[in-house]
Design a protein around this nucleic acid. Structure first.
Lengths: 203, 203
DNA sequence: TTCAAGGTAGACAGGTCGGTCTACTTCGGG
DNA sequence: CCCGAAGTAGACCGACCTGTCTACCTTGAA
């Protein structure tokens, strides 16, 4: 049962030698490296040269796999969506798979030393204006998140409506945790969630 | 009574001729231009050359006022904090100055055509990692916001605690509105706010 | 055996970035 | 009247950006 958001991928990458050992394709190495750097340092401020160097490939290989940096950005978001969603659903399961599970799951995320906020909110801030594909991926991701939350709600309420509100509270908590107040974020989230009508009959 | 977040400054700037007419100092013109461009297009993607051109000053003048782009970024955040907070407080007054006033105030903000989310959340995403001063300004801004919200809460509750939660709900609504769902954002915000204990006795 | 796909190394192009520099002008207060 | 502060115009610098290019090597399948 993998506890990290990165499903161990992070650990493997943090040691370049290990990443070379496990025979990953050039494309996978680029994508993994881009994921780490884009998320940690931002998309704009990470040059392709750096990704190329740290992934241990050459420019030709890089541009053969991703004709432009924009292609890599989109691939990065798709990849991030896959691994984050699967981590999130797994973490929910581990904590009881109900509305009350969200807080400890967020706690787990926020206290991860590699936590830098929501990659999609970040990307929207950096590229939203200039890349409509990014906006599209953000919508996809957040729609997926809302669907998962819907599954935690009882049937005797407007699930879509409440899932939307809960997802918003999560986003609020994420940005709050990002500027260095993870405990206040969890605290505030619990306050907001208390009001969700569906919660009380469930407990 | 000024209704725009920009207190008319935006309108003046949108017409460069007007901005020249009103004899603003070079520093003010730079700051106003930077505010528009940084907020609309992002900080990283706005070069000093562009600000210089659109403010109608020269490089020497620019660098005499702001020794580096980083200085301008900090000045921009301070400026933004001042004008946003004064708009926010004014808007709250116009809508009754209680907890229920927040939703219409947000509505006003989100539907402003120049709305691009919270400048501080955006800046945090772009520069947070590399500029600690930015993180500091974000903290200042959000603390100021919480203080204002505290003033809307009745005394028979833990105001600090609830203000913190409400501020988080606002942030959630802001990021949601940013990716193009302002009505859902307001809707979700109202749902979350319903649960605030202090609201019911007040109505 | 041949050949294409995908890998290697690294020079290079054209643009933008933040920032410095010289040289000249305008203008208000001591 | 003169001086200094603040303005003008625009060339220039080195660093870094995305993306292209030549030239060579390895490997596996037809």
């Amino acid at each position: 049962m993998e506890r990290s958001v990165y499903h161990g991928v992070m650990d493997r990458h943090s040691n370049p030698a290990l990443m070379d050992q496990t025979k990953l394709s050039a494309r996978e190495r680029i994508l993994l490296t881009a994921h780490v750097l884009f998320y940690r340092e931002g998309i704009r401020s990470t040059g392709v040269d750096r990704i190329i160097a740290e992934a241990g490939v050459t420019k030709v290989t890089f541009y053969r796999q991703f004709p432009s940096k924009d292609d890599l950005i989109v691939a990065f978001l798709d990849y991030r969506h896959r691994i984050w969603m699967s981590w999130f659903q797994d973490a929910l399961q581990r904590h009881g798979n109900n509305l009350l599970a969200i807080a400890p799951v967020l706690q787990e995320w926020f206290t991860d030393p590699s936590f830098r906020g929501c990659a999609f909110i970040n990307a929207l801030g950096e590229m939203g204006g200039s890349m409509p594909e990014v906006v599209h991926r953000v919508n996809q991701h957040k729609a997926g998140l809302r669907k998962v939350i819907e599954g935690l709600l009882p049937e005797n309420c407007d699930r879509e409506d409440w899932a939307s509100a809960v997802a918003m509270a999560i986003d609020g908590a994420v940005v709050r945790a990002k500027w260095g107040e993870p405990t206040e974020a969890i605290h505030g989230f619990n306050h907001l969630i208390e009001g969700v009508c569906c919660l009380k009959p469930q407990t």
